[in-house]
Each structure stands twice: as C-alpha cells, then as structure tokens.
C-alpha cells in the first residue's frame, strides 16, 4: 500500500503546483520540473522498453517467433508459469491466513510476526537462494542424509526454484491485506455470524468481497516478482537447460552466448507479463481507492 499513498502525495503536490501556476516564476519551475521528469522517464524507461522490442525483432519476425517457440524456451516458459502458479497459490493462502490472524485476533508476538513477514524483502535474493542450498543441498545441506535416503532432489531441480520464489514473494499478499483488514475490523463478520452464516460463508460473502482488490494487487505483485526473480533462483537452479531454467535465466544464457535477438525476444515475453501486470495493478489500485472513498 506504500506505493499507492506515495502516488497520492505526488498527485496532491501536482495539484498544489497547478494552483500556484498563475505566477510566472512558478510556471517556469513547473515546466522545468515536468521537463526533467519527462527526460528521465524517456531515458530510463521508454527508450529501454522500445529497444527491447526493436532488438527482439531486429532479425525479423521469423527469428522472433523461432526464438520464443524454441523447445528449450518453451520449457523455460513452462517452468516459469509453474513457479508463478505455486507462488501465487501458496502466498495467497499464506497472506490471507496471516492477515486474518493479525487483523481479527489478539495474540502475543503479533508485532514481531508482522515485522518478520518483511524479512524476504530485507534479505538479498542471493542470500535467500543460499539459505535453501544450505538446507536442501544433497551434498552439504542440513537435510542431505534424509534427501539422499528418500531420493528427493530439491536443489538444482524445480522444487528448489519454486521454494526460492515462494520465499522472495512471501510478503506481497500479506502486506497488502494486513492494513486493510485491520482497518475494516470485525463488525461485518460478526454481523454475518449473528445472522446465522457459517465461518466459510462469512469469509466468502463478506470478507472476500471487502478485500478482493487488495488481494488482486498483492497477487499481481507476486506474479511480477515470481516471473522476474533472478538472484535467488539463479543460486538454486544449476542452469540445466530445459530442466531448471526459468525465463530470466534463459535470457541470461542466450545473452552470454551472443544470441542477442533471441535473448531479447524471450526478454520481450517477460516485458509483456510486466506490462499486463501494470495494467491489472492500476485497475485494482483504482478500485481500492474507490472502495476507500465510499
């Protein structure tokens, strides 16, 4: 939610600027500031974005389509989608549970819990990846004897990638829901209970409609991070082509092999996911604001 309040502050500031634009000096400041913002915006965001697509299509649509329909590329797409799926489902369930517990019950250590939920954001993704290697490596991991005995492979295999991704995306849904559910309190749920609704029906008909846009926002952020996560995944993946490569890792490999067009073609897929995410994120932000104002 920090992002959206930040946005509102900027909007307010713009209103103030517009307000005082009657005077010439402030008009100049306005032009200067907006100009500076646009300049940075174009250099940092627009040009790189366009160049991704230009580079991707540099050798024609044929190469582009060949690059993204390549067997190994498709495997990477598949693994990325599976990872995203796991991250979204598990983090939604986790986020809802944590937010429900924090917002609706009183218990000791609540503040500590809320603080620790942010741990994955504070920690470097590389360290996050290494934690899982330390835990689950079949050669030197803490659980190595067990894993070897049962023949389970986590590190250098999809389960490791999924675990690392879940770890780095863990806070997104919870962080969106906790403040909202705390603010909404329990009165509506209690009203539903006294009207004879079961716990499940209360959740489905009362709680969920009240939090759905914030939940979607959290899910979008989770998807974006899950699709693009590089550091933690890189550590646990082992870079086995067609087996443990997600899209970002595949892009890196292609790039290191000087297959620039192919690299950018695959990168453009990630970019498209990002843009779609942005659109959904804005819709849900708009809906959250609307909900808050009624």
């Amino acid at each position: 939610m920090a992002g959206s309040t930040h946005g509102r502050i900027i909007q307010d500031n713009q209103k103030k600027l517009n307000h005082s634009s009657g005077r010439n000096s402030s008009k100049a400041v306005e032009i200067l500031l907006i100009g500076a913002v646009l300049f940075v915006f174009i250099i940092i965001l627009i040009i790189p974005l366009i160049s991704v697509f230009l580079k991707a299509f540099e050798q024609g649509a044929g190469v582009y389509i060949a690059s993204i329909t390549d067997r190994i590329a498709l495997k990477a797409v598949r693994l990325t989608l599976i990872t995203m799926g796991f991250a979204v489902v598990i983090n939604t369930a986790f986020g809802l549970t944590v937010a429900w517990a924090v917002a609706k019950f009183k218990f000791k250590g609540k503040n500590l819990l809320v603080t620790f939920i942010d741990l994955p954001f504070a920690i470097s993704p590389v360290v996050a990846g290494l934690i899982f290697v330390l835990l689950f490596s079949t050669t030197h991991g803490v659980t190595a004897p067990l894993l070897n005995a049962w023949g389970i492979k986590i590190i250098f295999a999809p389960p490791g990638i999924i675990l690392a991704t879940i770890f780095v995306t863990l806070p997104f849904v919870a962080r969106e829901l906790i403040p909202l559910m705390e603010a909404q309190g329990t009165a509506e749920e209690e009203a539903a209970l006294t009207l004879g609704a079961s716990g499940w029906k209360t959740f489905w008909f009362i709680t969920l409609p009240n939090i759905k846009w914030a939940l979607l926002y959290g899910v979008v952020l989770t998807v974006a991070r899950a699709a693009g996560e590089f550091g933690a995944v890189s550590v646990v993946s082992g870079h086995i082509r067609g087996l443990t490569n997600t899209l970002p890792l595949h892009v890196e490999i292609l790039y290191n092999e000087y297959k620039f067009s192919a690299a950018f073609a695959v990168a453009s897929l990630l970019t498209i996911i990002a843009i779609l995410n942005l659109v959904i994120k804005n819709i849900s932000e708009w809906k959250i604001n609307k909900q808050e104002n009624t």
Binding site: E188, L195, G196, S198, T294
Partner: peptide, 27 residues
C-alpha cells in the same frame, strides 16, 4: 453466535458495504 438465533444491531450498524439494502436484509 451462528446457532443462537439472536438478532444483533451493532453500534455502527456494520451493514455490508458491498451489498444493496435489499441484499443486506436478505443475507
């Protein structure tokens, strides 16, 4: 509370914000 069959009117009403008046009463 679910099984007691009591009607409870809350101090700040606790109406379901996302439902119409009709849906609130029918809930």
């Amino acid at each position: 509370a679910q099984d007691r069959k009591v009607g409870f009117v809350f101090q700040h009403y606790a109406l379901f914000k996302h439902m119409t008046v009709f849906e609130n009463i029918a809930f």
